[in-house]
């Protein structure tokens, strides 16, 4: 049997757009972005193991305006994925699945992400960058 004859689940477009839906889609998007940022983590650790000249090169890249922008994005994506991830873990236990509760937890998540990301960016800038 051809694989394209298999039954399909209702597609995204049959649902009314809700911010809870955007929240869930962004969880996946930030997850993929964070996967990409693993390259940065590995580069940083390898540079640290390779000695001061190599580390200086990587640190300069990360400390450049573009590097800081990327780091800020990674921090925002991390705190977002962290908060929505905890929300999904609660869902997995079967709790807070009612529509009203899900919308409330979505708002709590948004506030928490703004606070955590804001505090992280302040810490990043307060140090005057990366190095």
């Amino acid at each position: 049997m051809a694989s394209n004859l298999r039954p399909l689940s209702p597609h995204l477009q049959v649902y009314r757009t809700m911010y809870t839906m955007a929240l869930s889609i962004l969880h996946r998007a930030t997850g993929v972005a964070l996967s990409g940022s693993l390259l940065l983590l590995a580069a940083w650790l390898l540079a640290l193991a390779s000695g001061a000249p190599c580390y200086g090169w990587v640190a300069a890249l990360l400390g450049s305006p573009l590097g800081l922008l990327v780091l800020a994005g990674v921090l925002a994506a991390f705190w977002y994925h962290f908060c929505t991830g905890i929300r999904h873990l609660v869902f997995d236990t079967g709790h807070c699945l009612e529509k009203r509760q899900a919308r409330l937890s979505a708002r709590v998540v948004i506030v928490a992400v703004v606070i955590l990301t804001g505090a992280s960016l302040l810490a990043l800038l307060h140090r005057g960058g990366y190095v």
Binding site: A52, Y55, R127, V131
Partner: peptide, 11 residues
Amino acid sequence: LLQPDLGYVHA
């Protein structure tokens, strides 16, 4: 984020 310095020696 709380490290005052992430230069080579400190990192």
